[in-house]
Simulated assay, not measured.
Amino acid sequence: MVIFQPSTHKVVVIYDTRDKYWFFPRGRKDMGESLETTAIREAYEESGYQAEFLPLYIPTQAPAPPSERSRYDLPNTEPFYVTMSSWSPRRGNRRMGGEYLTSWWIGQIPENAVHTKNTGMPDEQTYTSHLCTYEQAMGLVFGSERDVLRYAWAVYVHTLETQERQRRAQARQSQTPADNTEPKAARRATT
């Protein structure tokens, strides 16, 4: 999950002090757990922040139910990106090679978000969370996570611009004179 703090437009980036690298929260789902639940749980375990999904104007090819076509015009909390990594079989080991698909979501924390320590698994106790600007985060993460962040930021900025256009349109609509309901003949008589 890429976690934004909308009040500051910062992003949560995690640093592993043992292995010396920066990353975004991610992990495997538990048996019987939904992908959405996994994303929220992993975000909390690895970052220490209780994130929630951030509704955004995310382009999607997922079909809406026929009776709900207007969903295309609304923000959603669908995964916004998928990455894949693969590994080769190990010699002398029964473990086969494979592929690891990661579905990425965008989350949010409030301005007054409380950071909780020691939320991760025993091997995650060396993780520290940092609120960074987009530019700082781009300089810290590497590989496919840079692509993930670049696209997450583009979707986030697009959503902010869309919301601002909507706010301006609503403001213009509320500024139209309320006197337009007066009959034309009555308006002419008073002029």
Rank of each mutant, 00 (worst) to 15 (best):
K29F: 04
T17F: 02
Y100E: 15
A171Y: 03
F24L: 00
S103Q: 13
R26I: 01
Y156T: 00
D73V: 01
W105F: 15
K20I: 00
S174V: 05
Q5L: 05
G139C: 08
L101P: 07
A154W: 05
T191L: 12
Q175N: 11
M96E: 12
F23N: 07
G143P: 06
S70M: 09
S67W: 09
W105V: 03
A169D: 14
T191C: 08
A43D: 03
G139W: 07
Q170G: 08
Q163A: 06
E33H: 11
A113Q: 01
A189L: 11
V155H: 07
R91P: 15
D16F: 10
T83N: 12
F23E: 09
R69K: 15
V82D: 12
T60G: 00
K184M: 10
V148N: 02
G48T: 06
S103A: 09
Q50A: 07
E36D: 13
T128R: 14
E36W: 03
S103R: 14
D73T: 04
Q125E: 14
C132R: 15
R71I: 05
G120H: 12
S34L: 06
R28M: 11
G107Y: 01
T102G: 09
I40K: 04
T126N: 15
Y81F: 10
P75W: 05
T37E: 15
S67P: 00
Y21E: 11
T176H: 10
D30E: 14
H9I: 01
Q61L: 08
S47E: 04
R168G: 07
N93V: 05
P65A: 13
S85P: 01
T77E: 04
T83P: 07
E161Y: 02
Q175F: 07
T126Q: 14
E52Q: 12
P79R: 01
Q173W: 09
V2D: 04
V148A: 04
L35V: 05
Q173F: 05
T83C: 10
Y21I: 01
V13L: 05
E111K: 10
R167V: 00
R95N: 12
K10H: 11
L149A: 05
K117A: 13
A137S: 11
D147I: 04
E78M: 12
T191N: 11
R71A: 08
P55D: 09
F23G: 07
Q125H: 13
Q136T: 09
V157H: 02
Y57P: 07
R90W: 09
M31C: 04
P6Y: 01
E164C: 09
A51T: 02
A171I: 00
D123M: 02
A43M: 03
L101G: 06
N112G: 02
E111D: 03
S86L: 05
A185T: 08
T60A: 00
K29R: 14
S70K: 15
D19S: 10
S144P: 02
Q61T: 11
E45Y: 09
Q163S: 02
G97V: 04
S144E: 13
S103K: 13
E135N: 13
R188K: 13
A43N: 10
E164M: 09
E33T: 10
P6L: 02
P183M: 07
